[in-house]
């Protein structure tokens, strides 16, 4: 069953009316891991922000269907309440807010045990982090993990993760893929993410390759990476390719 369907979506920036995405169509199957790949500036982040309903972009044409319902003109928080959420590439810091309060923000009914479980799931010791402020005293990696835990805490049906593995060193991003698998198993959620790393092949199902605001290929993740991250433009398109 398709959890997300994007049909002929064209998007422009509200700031300068510049077209960023053109005629984008793809669908994500329930309980799968779907990856968006492509060079910098190809429109991947614009696509996920548009799916989430960020007001800085306007949909010129096309539709976004989530669980079969048209959400194209729905506000961000309404989409979130339906079970769609987004984890940011460079997450914001929150002065005076503890990890516990941050995880509760999106789910008032969550129990303390669940919060502890989710922190553990992303590799953080609840004893150390429950009362820790979500401030810039955290390392980048710790903040990213808290972002994942917060996304999970909303119990989403589809979680969108914008480059969750960027800025993580080799040891940590390998651990991160384990975390991602654990999250998927634990929550049963579908995951749509942006990534440049071939190592995702171990867990990813489908992929779409974006270039200059258009989807140029979609299908099996490994095949996409093989076809588009080859010899001449390998480094340009896949900065982390081996």
């Amino acid at each position: 069953m398709k959890i997300l369907e994007v049909k002929n979506l064209s998007v422009e920036s509200k700031e300068d009316n510049k077209k960023i995405l053109e005629n984008i169509s793809f669908s994500v199957a329930e309980k799968s891991i779907y990856v968006l790949v492509g060079p910098n500036g190809s429109g991947k982040s614009t696509l996920v922000y548009t799916l989430m309903g960020m007001p800085r972009f306007s949909v010129v044409s096309g539709k976004i269907l989530f669980l079969g319902k048209d959400i194209t003109n729905l506000a961000i928080n309404k989409r979130a309440k339906m079970g769609l959420t987004l984890g940011f590439q460079d997450p914001a810091y929150f002065e005076g807010i503890t990890c516990e309060a941050f995880l509760r923000a999106g789910n008032k009914n969550i129990s303390l045990n669940e919060i502890k479980k989710y922190l553990t799931l992303v590799g953080l010791d609840p004893k150390k982090f429950l009362n820790r402020e979500v401030s810039n005293s955290l390392s980048g990696g710790e903040r990213k993990r808290i972002e994942f835990a917060s996304v999970i805490a909303t119990k989403p049906k589809l979680m969108i993760l914008d480059e969750p593995d960027s800025g993580l060193d080799v040891m940590i991003y390998r651990e991160f893929y384990n975390i991602l698998e654990n999250i998927k198993e634990e929550t049963g959620a579908t995951i749509l993410l942006i990534s440049h790393r071939e190592e995702l092949g171990a867990i990813a199902n489908q992929a779409a390759f974006l270039d200059k605001g258009q989807i140029v290929s979609k299908g099996n993740f490994r095949k996409i990476m093989k076809d588009y991250c080859h010899a001449s433009n390998r480094r340009k398109i896949c900065p982390y390719a081996k």
Partner: peptide
């Protein structure tokens, strides 16, 4: 801060 605001809205807050 807009980023803080958007983060919380993606978690369902108005």
């Amino acid at each position: 801060n807009q980023k803080e605001l958007e983060t919380l809205m993606t978690r369902g807050l108005s």
